[in-house]
Design a protein around this nucleic acid. Structure first.
Lengths: 117, 117
DNA sequence: TTGACACATGCTGATAACGGCATATATCGT
DNA sequence: ACGATATATGCCGTTATCAGCATGTGTCAA
């Protein structure tokens, strides 16, 4: 078995930075593919493929408008990600964690130095 | 070029559900590898490899303790993920988004049906 | 109809993940 | 020293990504 497909879930889909960039662009509102192409500097097929992945995980949806397709953000698809990291956010927002991190570094250094004090 | 390495950043590292599971286990405190093996049901090499990835992105750190290594969560590594999804959370917490989603579905259906009203 | 435009899909090649298994390293107990 | 325990690493095979390029489908204009 290889790595899970990018279309398995939102976690895999947003691992690709270009896809996050596309979502960022869509958070400003509906946009046709061409706009995303010029904004990202990617080729049109690349953008379409990324959009396909995002569609399959439900992060975007498309609407036909003449010969173009307007893509729209579907933010609820990101909820599982947010829900998961939310618990961890408490840990560093505590400030104690940051302090712990610093102290941990110092302690580790002391141990490396032997009984240097 | 293939998919970005799992060690590229936290986004790629946490795409793998087993690694999220390991982080979840470590959020209860420091644990030796053996505990993670029994808790996850994975083989020991698998766990060690996942831990290596998590170490390389700075999500965990290890401390020597006799013949075992105690792994500790480093939650700050998850901050970029949280920061990124946080903006999107506002969108669905607005409730208007959910309403929009429903209305969008209806509108799309009407358009599919032609002027069915 | 012909052509231009907008978008999606198919194919190829290169890369690297992930699982499984074996094995190397280090520590503890006797 | 020897065996057992704890952990890390190496190799192999399968699989799916991602970039690039060509091509297919549908829409608008003349």
């Amino acid at each position: 078995m290889a790595r899970a497909a990018t279309t398995t879930d939102t976690f895999n889909a947003i691992a690709e930075p270009r896809r996050r960039q596309i979502l960022d662009l869509l958070s400003n509102g509906e946009r046709p593919v061409k706009d995303l192409v010029s904004a990202t500097g990617l080729t049109q097929p690349q953008v379409s493929k990324h959009l396909r992945v995002l569609r399959e995980v439900g992060a975007v949806s498309a609407r036909e408008a003449g010969r173009q397709r307007l893509y729209r953000l579907d933010p609820l698809a990101l909820k599982p990600v947010h829900d998961w990291v939310r618990d961890y956010a408490r840990l560093w927002e505590d400030r104690f964690t940051e302090l712990d991190a610093v102290l941990g570094e110092l302690t580790a250094k002391e141990e490396d130095d032997g009984d240097g004090g």
